[in-house]
């Protein structure tokens, strides 16, 4: 799952939204690290301006462009790990998705970024699950967690194409093959169809499969 560049997003936005985005990105760029003076979640003060833009991106740019605008804001602010964590924890589902999509661009240390991915994978919100299994997860999730993430995609109907580096991570994974086989058997025993994606991933686990 890739998000468009500033130039591409520019072409898709109307005049008002484009002007809003430019102003918001300028404010984000003026806040290096994205750090704020006050990181306490229940602080009485309003959040800093660019974080408010992060919240309002959907109504300013249209929901279909919200992911892209929010990821650009995070990148422009060079949001650090505490900022990413706060924005994720205090975010709507849409804002959390944007933080997840920004992880491979901002590359927080695994100790900071992986807990956010794991949180998203505990939800049953397919928009979050799909955003969680991107390149950052492919790079940093341990084998057990990654296998369960993939199984969760199959369970909740998230296309496994959302999973980055699928072929590479699945290649030669005998444990994943066993889990997929057991799941297929369970579905078959229940008289329910086996998801087509399951067979695709199962084929990828083969040691002879080119990936």
């Amino acid at each position: 799952m890739t998000t468009p560049t500033r130039e591409v997003l520019h072409d898709r936005l109307g005049d008002a939204a484009r002007a809003w985005l430019d102003a918001a990105l300028a404010e984000a760029g003026a806040a290096p690290g994205g750090a704020t003076d006050d990181d306490t979640p229940t602080a009485p003060s309003s959040p800093p301006a660019w974080e408010q833009h992060f919240a309002s991106a959907g109504r300013q740019c249209g929901q279909e462009h919200a992911d892209a605008a929010r990821v650009l804001l995070l990148r422009e602010a060079r949001a650090d790990a505490p900022t990413l964590t706060r924005l994720y924890r205090q975010g709507t589902a849409a804002e959390r998705r944007a933080v997840l999509l920004a992880l491979p661009h901002l590359e927080p240390a695994p100790a900071d970024g992986v807990p956010l991915v794991e949180d998203a994978l505990r939800t049953n919100d397919t928009r979050l699950v799909a955003a969680a299994v991107g390149p950052y997860a492919a790079e940093h999730l341990d084998p057990h967690t990654w296998r369960h993430a993939l199984l969760k995609c199959l369970f909740t109907g998230v296309p496994v194409d959302a999973a980055a580096r699928l072929g590479q991570r699945a290649h030669g994974d005998a444990e994943l093959a066993r889990m997929l086989g057991d799941y297929a058997a369970e579905r078959t025993a229940a008289g329910r169809p086996v998801p087509a994606d399951l067979h695709r991933v199962l084929a990828l686990t083969s040691r002879t499969e080119e990936s």
Partner: peptide, 15 residues
Amino acid sequence: LPVLDALPRFLVKDN
């Protein structure tokens, strides 16, 4: 009552 102090961060949300 501290909920009142935290409301601003929720009131900026799109939904």
